[in-house]
């Protein structure tokens, strides 16, 4: 391992991996490599010790049972807490987003989360499935969020977490706000390969991790066309 290498950890793909969660790791690695940044990716299974010195940690979605198990193991392991304390960036999706909060519901039981985001999650009356869009917190300097959501949870933000976005289509946390961020931790209900539609969010994680104020632009023609198409599709009827 070299100190100039960007290290990306995918947390527990054996437990938390729904459709396309791998995509975020592939996209970050691709966008780093395209800027000449050496990059290494690690898939850390739930029977392995969590590295504490990586730069970006990714955690994906999943079913109730694996979600509860993942939270328990991450609390016992402590590695993610140490990594965050040392300034690592995090992208947490769906079930992974919920378990970064204080508590969440899995299989009808309230479970303790990592407490790294000031949020709590419970169950909504209906499942939120469909296009999701929102205007991202202006402090992050990003264009609108677009994603596909598929979750039964509702998330409530405390004073120390800011909404990632104001919902302009779909449900997100509660129909008003979507996702949360604090420090270098970003959580979202935009499921699976969220970064495929939000390349500037990927670059934000890369800038946080490298300390670079700006990165060389990439040809995002196709991502921009995809964004345009999906933002239009996500407008409320």
């Amino acid at each position: 391992m070299n100190d100039s290498t960007l290290r990306i950890v995918w947390i527990y793909p054996d437990l938390l991996s729904t459709y396309g969660d791998r995509g975020n790791m592939l996209i970050l690695a691709h966008r780093a490599a395209a800027r000449g940044i050496p990059v290494e990716t690690y898939e850390v299974r739930s029977d392995m010790q969590m590295p504490t010195t990586a730069d970006i940690y990714l955690i994906g979605g999943g079913e109730d049972g694996p979600q509860a198990l993942a939270a328990q193991r991450l609390i016992n392991d402590g590695g993610v807490h140490r990594a965050v304390a040392q300034g690592a960036s995090v992208l947490a999706i769906c079930a992974g987003y919920q378990l970064f909060g204080h508590s969440f519901f899995a299989k009808g039981t309230k479970c303790a989360g990592l407490g790294l985001l000031d949020i709590t999650s419970d169950r909504g009356e209906t499942r939120a499935v469909g296009e999701l869009r929102g205007d991202i917190d202006p402090r992050l300097g990003l264009p609108p969020l677009t994603g596909f959501e598929n979750h039964g949870g509702r998330t409530h933000l405390g004073a120390h977490a800011a909404p990632l976005a104001r919902v302009t289509g779909g449900i997100g946390n509660d129909g008003q706000t979507e996702g949360a961020w604090y420090g270098k931790i970003i959580g979202t209900y935009s499921h699976g390969p969220a970064l495929s539609r939000n390349p500037e969010l990927a670059d934000l994680l890369l800038r946080w991790s490298t300390g670079a104020d700006r990165l060389a632009p990439l040809d995002d023609t196709w991502a921009d066309r995809l964004r345009g198409e999906r933002l239009a599709a996500g407008l409320p009827a």
Binding site: T18, Y19, G20, D21, R22, G23, L26, V129, G130, F148, N150, H191, G192, P193, S196
Partner: peptide, 9 residues
Amino acid sequence: GLDTSWLWD
């Protein structure tokens, strides 16, 4: 299915 995420798998 309305979701294309599987393309990344």
